[in-house]
Amino acid sequence: MKVSIRIEYCPKCGWMLRAAYMAQELLTTFTGDIYSVELIPSEISGRYTIMLNQQVLFDRKREGRFPEIKELKQLVRDQVNPQKDLGHSDKK
């Protein structure tokens, strides 16, 4: 079953382009595994949270940083298609 991903970002902080880039990378990498990636402008300042279905994959405030795209792909892969080879983005 394909999953839905939500990226909630702070528009006041100017993080829309970062969210759009990550959405593009996920849609390109997981073509057969992802149903949708939804970008949600947050009403809470400083928020940058990535959710898979209803599970939080990454929260900027909790981690104290943004995810690297390689790291995000690995987190998604581990949930949706553990056997998928991510090529150069895979764990070493």
Rank of each mutant, 00 (worst) to 15 (best):
K70S: 12
E38T: 15
G14L: 10
S4G: 15
R65M: 09
V80P: 03
M16L: 15
K12A: 15
M1G: 15
N53L: 08
I5R: 06
S42A: 06
K91N: 13
W15S: 05
T49P: 10
A20P: 00
G64S: 05
M22C: 03
V80L: 04
F66V: 09
A19E: 04
G87A: 08
A20D: 05
E63F: 10
Y35I: 07
D85Q: 09
K61P: 00
F58K: 10
Y9M: 06
K73W: 01
A19I: 09
M1Y: 07
E8P: 07
K73N: 10
Y9K: 07
E68H: 06
Y21E: 14
I7V: 13
W15T: 11
E43T: 12
P41V: 11
N81Y: 02
Q54G: 09
T31V: 14
A20C: 00
C10L: 07
L26D: 00
R6V: 10
M1H: 13
E71G: 05
S36I: 02
Q55V: 14
I44T: 14
Q74R: 15
Y35G: 06
I5N: 05
N53Y: 06
K92M: 01
I69M: 04
S36L: 06
P67R: 00
S36M: 07
A19H: 08
R62S: 12
L57P: 12
I50S: 05
T49D: 12
S89W: 12
P67M: 03
R60L: 11
I69T: 13
Y21H: 13
K73S: 06
V76W: 04
G46P: 03
L17A: 14
I5A: 06
D33N: 12
T31Q: 14
Y48K: 09
L86T: 02
A19G: 07
R77V: 09
R65I: 08
K2C: 02
D90C: 04
K92W: 03
M22D: 09
D59I: 08
I34Y: 05
K91C: 11
A23W: 02
R60A: 15
L52E: 09
S36Y: 01
I40M: 10
K84G: 07
T28G: 01
F30G: 03
E63V: 07
E71T: 05
R47N: 10
M22E: 13
D59K: 09
G64D: 04
D78Q: 11
I40S: 07
K73P: 04
R18C: 10
L52W: 03
